[in-house]
Design a protein around this nucleic acid. Structure first.
Lengths: 209, 209
DNA sequence: CAGGCCGCTGTGGTCTGACCACTAGATTTC
DNA sequence: GAAATCTAGTGGTCAGACCACAGCGGCCTG
């Protein structure tokens, strides 16, 4: 490859090359990318530089490596990222509060969308699931997040939830009746009541947002 | 360090060691971390492994390296992350829609919070700013996001906005009167009207969420 | 022929030692 | 005292060497 970007770091150039390579060959999750040695050859850089780029992308969750097999594009989701950012600097008090608040906001958004757009079947399925067995609070809201059909919002929720879990603001004992009440309101498309139930009976808050 | 995690990758152990090292010495943004060679010594691993870890953290935006000086903890914000994830796989149509929807949801959340908790002075200041000169739509909502005092939510908005900008769903010509109307409702704490104004007059949508 | 063993090849994982480029601070020089 | 210089330390990069592991094909045995 050209080495015009003279002063910048090689491993970043490799990242960039990989990006365009993926784009050019329209590689999809699961596909294999060239081996480290081949990349090193093709790009005229040392193998260690290639590795630095690959390790970085791996930590980002963009690729996956299997020793003896090769390096593959990953169906990205569930990056290491979460645990990382989380444990790295999330000890502050204010941050914790923001976290909790944001989580509530996102969950309410999801509830709104579900109240509007989810099919009755979906909601009934969820009711059956609640009745069926034990679950944690975040199991429940994960399902809500999935129901909302907005993959990005779902992902944001997942990330925030992971943060929240590493810092134990989890709530253990769920009372099924509260969740059932919530679902019933959703089934009736009563957005207002549903959110009220969520805030007061599930999150034990007063009426402010 | 112990090397019990026999089968896992060394560079990940280094990342972990760095994490606890930072925690133990309560290092803050701007502080220097040990040199690559020293880490390599202290942890009994090759320098290349240390570098793989550092490069990964660098791409994540957690640290910053300056040749000839050393490696420093970074005031994290503005990671490379955004551009990366963005350019890597965000070409899909559905993803674009989700993006737009999520952005609207977050913005509405911010508006709600501002309507409840922002001081009249803050809002008036914003009104003055709108009157004062030209601005882009995202300039405006960045200020809204900042007003809401939830740093995490603000960060999420920033990220989503960056995504959105790389894929040009930006709107150019703003009409000040719409934004002023919105702010007036906020000043009157009329959440409902404010959101209606946002959706219909600023985002040109019908009444659904 | 079927099944399993073996070794070859290619891949990632890691280490070492060698340079280079650059910075900052100490040293020397004027 | 100020300016130029030297030097030690740091990140940036490379080449080459092993190791561990997965996959494949060929060979042997039943």
């Amino acid at each position: 490859m050209a080495e015009r970007t003279s002063s910048s770091k090689i491993y970043l150039e490799v990242v960039e090359s990989l990006r365009s390579m993926i784009e050019a060959d329209s590689l999809l999750p699961g596909d294999k990318i060239p081996s480290e040695r081949e990349l090193s050859d093709r790009l005229n850089v040392g193998r260690s530089s290639v590795r630095e780029a690959l390790r970085a992308l791996e930590l980002l969750g963009l690729i996956e490596t299997r020793r003896g097999e090769g390096t593959f594009i990953r169906d990205f989701q569930e990056h290491k990222l979460v645990e990382l950012l989380g444990t790295f600097f999330l000890q502050d008090k204010k941050v914790q509060e923001d976290l909790a608040e944001t989580k509530r906001l996102i969950e309410i958004d999801c509830l709104r969308i579900v109240a509007f757009f989810a099919t009755a079947e979906d909601i009934k399925r969820l009711i059956a699931w609640v009745r069926a067995g034990e679950f944690r609070d975040d199991d429940f809201f994960l399902r809500i997040a999935i129901l909302n059909r907005n993959r990005l919002l779902e992902r944001i929720w997942r990330i925030i939830n992971s943060y929240a879990r590493t810092s134990e603001m989890v709530q253990g004992n769920v009372r099924k009746e509260e969740y059932l009440a919530l679902l019933t309101y959703l089934l009736e498309r009563d957005e207002e009541k549903a959110i009220e139930t969520y805030l007061i009976r599930i999150r034990n808050m007063s009426k402010d947002e």
